Measured scan of single mutants.
Amino acid sequence: IRCIGVSNRDFVEGMSGGTWVDVVLEHGGCVTVMAQDKPTVDIELVTTTVSNMAEVRSYCYEASISDMASDSRCPTQGEAYLDKQSDTQYVCKRTLVDRGWGNGCGLFGKGSLVTCAKFTCSKKMTGKSIQPENLEYRIMLSVHGSQHSGMIVNDTGYETDENRAKVEVTPNSPRAEATLGGFGSLGLDCEPRTGLDFSDLYYLTMNNKHWLVHKEWFHDIPLPWHAGADTGTPHWNNKEALVEFKDAHAKRQTVVVLGSQEGAVHTALAGALEAEMDGAKGKLFSGHLKCRLKMDKLRLKGVSYSLCTAAFTFTKVPAETLHGTVTVEVQYAGTDGPCKIPVQMAVDMQTLTPVGRLITANPVITESTENSKMMLELDPPFGDSYIVIGVGDKKITHHWHRSGSTIGKAFEATVRGAKRMAVLGDTAWDFGSVGGVFNSLGKGIHQIFGAAFKSLFGGMSWFSQILIGTLLVWLGLNTKNGSISLTCLALGGVMIFLSTAVSA
C-alpha cells in the first residue's frame, strides 16, 4: 500500500470489461488503480535517471590570480610587451599612462603600459546536455494484498515479495511487465516523455548541487567559461569578468580578483528545477510519464477462499488518510488461513446495510499462523458509518465519521480527471477507425466523469442509474429551450454510458 502517505494521489477506475487503462505517473504523486474483478494496485514513479550526459560548457565562479607582471614604455618608444601576453592562462590589459620627467621619461606624453596576471579557477559549475534516449524511469508497484503497516513504502525485498514489484522503462524499451506472483502480471506500455523539453534544458552542477536550467539563461551567464570537458589546462574565455584592473600608474597597475560568485548564482537559480546525482547518473524529480496498463493477466487472489471465522482485533486505531479513506490494521487469532476477511461498512448496526467501498479488493489472510496481521483500506461514505470486521458474535466494529460532501468530492474528481486527460493529450485517442474513435470517446468520458459518477451514484443499482439517464434524455427531447435540451441530452447520455461502463 504505497499511496496512503502521498498527498498527491489519483484514483483511476477501469471500465467494466476493459483490459487496459491509461494513467499519468508523476514525481511526488501516486496512482491507485481499481477495476472490477482485479486486485487494487498502487503505482508510483520513484526516480527518473539520466546517463551519458555530455559537458557543454563550464563557468568559473571563484578564481585566484598570481605571478603579476607589468612592462611600460616612454612616449615614442613603441608598445610595451610581455611574453605572458601569448599565454592563455594569463589575463592581460594594455593601456596608456601619462609619462614625463617625473617618472623617468625625457618627453612628456602618453606611454604604453601592459599588465598580466595568471588566472586560476578555484571553483566552477558545469552544464551538461541531456539526450531523451538516455532517460530511465523506475516504477514501483504494490498490490493491496496481505501486507501490514511495516511494509508500507518499503522498497527492500521486492524481489521475493509477490505484493510488490519494480520495473524500469526507457525510450528504447518502453514496454515492461511486472510479475506479482499469485496476482498474475501487469503489463506497462509507457510513452517516455517527461513533459520537459530537454532540447531547451541543461543539467547544471555547482558545488555538489544540481538544477535543470534553460539553455539561453545558461549561455548568457557573465562569467569566465570554457567549452567542452575539462582537459586539465582549460582555456578560459572572458577571464576579465572576475578580474579587475585598478587605476594605472606610470610603471605598474594593481590587479585584484573578485570574490566568489556562488551567492549571486544561487539567487539567479531561484525557482529552477532541482535535481540530484546518483553516482555518474543524474536524478530528476520533475515531469511525468504516461503509461497504458494492460490488466488482462491480472487476477484476484483468494476468490475461492472461505470466510475467516475466528476473532479479529484492531492492532491500531483506524486512521484517516490524506485522501479521506480509512486504513485499518487487524490481527487474526485463527489458524484456518488462508481465508477471506469479512469486512464491510454499514450505516447502522441493526440492518448492516453496506455503504462505501473497499479500496483493498478481496482482502485475505494468507498465513495459517496465529496472530497474522493484515492492513486494508476503505472508502467510507460522508457522515457517520460503522466499520464491521468478522462474522457472528466475534465481529468487531468501529464508529467512523467522514466530513465533507459527495458533491465536493465529485467536483474534485472531475477536475482531476480533466487534468489527466489534458496530460494524456492525443495519445488517449485513436482515429484509425470508426470503432477506435468511439472507443476513445468512451475512454475520455470515463477518465473525466467516472470518479464523479461513482461518488454521486455508486450506491444505486445499474438499472436505477439507466432509468435516471433515460429520464434526462426524455426531458431533453421534450424541452423547447435549446440549451436546457442539449444539457439534459448530454447528461442523460453520459449517465447511461457510465452506468453500463463503470464497474460497481
Rank of each mutant, 00 (worst) to 15 (best):
G17M: 10
E162I: 05
E240A: 09
G259Y: 08
N237D: 09
Q131H: 05
N478A: 02
G476F: 09
S368K: 00
L107V: 03
G302H: 04
K110I: 06
L141F: 09
F11V: 09
Y81Q: 07
L273W: 07
F453P: 13
V169K: 08
K110C: 07
A80Y: 11
P234G: 13
C116W: 08
G337H: 13
F411M: 11
K239G: 02
H266E: 13
V494I: 13
G263K: 11
K166A: 15
T49I: 15
G228V: 00
Y203P: 02
G302L: 06
L352K: 11
R175V: 09
N154L: 02
G408Q: 12
G469M: 14
L269F: 14
G469N: 02
S16C: 03
K297V: 01
V364T: 00
E162N: 03
S260H: 12
T160N: 00
T397H: 03
G150E: 15
K443T: 13
G181A: 13
K128I: 00
Q89P: 01
D42N: 14
R252V: 03
E13D: 00
F411W: 10
D336V: 13
E329Y: 12
F198T: 09
V355E: 05
T397E: 09
Y90V: 09
V437W: 01
I396H: 00
V303G: 01
E62Y: 11
A501F: 10
F457H: 08
S499Q: 11
K239T: 06
Q131K: 10
G324Q: 11
S455L: 14
P318H: 04
K246A: 01
A361L: 01
V303Y: 02
V31L: 09
K110A: 03
V50A: 15
F183I: 12
P380Q: 01
D83E: 14
L25D: 07
L467Q: 03
T397Y: 06
V46T: 15
A54K: 07
L284N: 07
T335N: 11
L284A: 01
G104Q: 07
K294A: 05
G184Y: 08
L441R: 02
N8G: 03
L284G: 00
M140Y: 14
S173K: 04
A501I: 09
P363S: 07
R292A: 01
G459W: 08
R402A: 11
E26Y: 05
F314C: 02
S385V: 12
W462I: 08
K251I: 01
G417V: 05
V502P: 13
Q131A: 12
F431E: 09
G263Q: 11
S286I: 01
H288W: 09
P380A: 02
K84V: 11
N362L: 01
R73W: 11
F245P: 03
F11H: 05
M345L: 15
E412L: 09
Q447E: 04
R193K: 15
G383I: 07
S372R: 00
V21C: 05
V91L: 15
L491V: 15
Q253T: 05
F457S: 14
S173Q: 05
S433N: 04
S461K: 09
G444K: 13
N103S: 14
S405L: 01
H226Y: 10
K251M: 02
D336M: 13
L135K: 02
T321N: 07
K409R: 15
A248G: 13
T49D: 01
L212M: 13
P354C: 00
G181K: 04
F245E: 08
Q85K: 05
G337I: 13
Y81W: 04
I43C: 05
L376D: 03
V153F: 07
Q344V: 13
E216S: 04
K294D: 06
M151F: 02
A35Y: 06
I365P: 04
N481E: 10
V243M: 11
K297H: 13
V167I: 15
T313E: 02
L300Q: 06
D220F: 08
Q131S: 03
V502Y: 11
P171G: 14
G259F: 09
V423M: 14
T49A: 05
R138V: 15
Q331V: 05
C92Y: 13
G356I: 04
K166Y: 00
N134S: 09
T487S: 09
G287V: 15
G356L: 02
W462T: 13
L223T: 09
T47E: 01
I466N: 09
F198Y: 09
A54C: 05
G182W: 05
P192K: 06
G106C: 02
G195I: 10
M374I: 11
G78E: 06
L456P: 10
V21M: 09
I468V: 13
V41R: 00
L201C: 00
K281W: 00
T88F: 05
G432V: 02
W474E: 05
H144M: 10
M345H: 09
G28H: 04
H399R: 02
F218A: 04
S503V: 03
V33R: 01
N371F: 13
R9H: 06
L298S: 00
H401Q: 13
K209C: 08
C60Q: 06
D393K: 00
V502W: 12
V343L: 09
V33I: 08
I221C: 04
M295I: 08
M53F: 07
G436R: 00
F449G: 10
G390L: 02
R416V: 02
G404A: 10
R299Q: 06
T120H: 14
P224S: 13
T479Q: 03
T115F: 06
E136D: 14
F183H: 09
A69W: 07
V21A: 03
S72W: 06
P381H: 05
A35P: 02
M15P: 00
T47D: 00
S440E: 08
Y305L: 00
G459M: 13
I359Q: 08
S72Q: 07
G29M: 05
G259H: 10
R99T: 07
Q447S: 13
F119N: 08
L242P: 01
C105V: 03
V24S: 02
L82K: 08
E26K: 13
S58L: 00
T267Q: 05
G182M: 09
L45G: 04
R73S: 09
T179Q: 06
S403I: 15
T47V: 14
H249Y: 12
M295R: 04
V355P: 00
P171V: 03
P132L: 15
